[in-house]
Design a protein around this nucleic acid. Sequence first.
DNA 1: GCTATGATCATA
DNA 2: ATGATCATAGCA
Length: 208
Amino acid sequence: MTEAQIDPRILRAPILPRSFYARPTVQVARALLGKILVHDRLGPGFGAERRAAGRIVETEAYLGTADPAAHAYRGVTTRTRVLFGPPGHAYVYLIYGMYNCLNVVAEAEGTAGCVLIRAIEPITSLEGSGSGPGRLTRALGITLKHNGQDLTRGPITIREPIDPEAGPTAVFETAVSPRIGIRQAADWPLRFFVRGNAHVSRSPRRIS
DNA sequence: GCTATGATCATA
DNA sequence: ATGATCATAGCA
């Protein structure tokens, strides 16, 4: 049985501060590309195989009350409350009865806005693919119970890679496209991904 | 209480 | 093109 070796870069990677998230949503969506998403299932322990991590290679911005495709479009509800809360928290929801989607709350408290994490490039060995929003949460063990959690505290954190010269996506070009799978505001250019990266999702655009 | 609706994915 | 499967929203 081969123990998966953790890339030591994630052990030293500093957690992104709240100020990173307290910016316009589109800025946050672009800035999240290349950052490292970590789920430490044992907290600050040393259980190496319990730590799952990947590099973010695809995101989508959802612009709150100004965006017909956003959950926050119709204002505060039980579900969307976290979107209007302080930035740097996780917004997790269940879609199609089977998939959890992980979003990051952006903008100042009181203003809704979030970034959907759509794909990661594995750093640790993952159980399954990290390509696609439903698959990456399954691979990292992220569920509804993580909704509202503070991403500056963990166990889910997003980190700055310590050595930007290392790794296959360290130097990259950001590509832009319409968002995947929505019907409202279907042509808004709010999807961002690492051009040419093999782990970017290839979900078909929903039609009709 | 009830019903419609998905920011998905796999299979065909 | 279809189906699996369920939390949430909107309405009565």
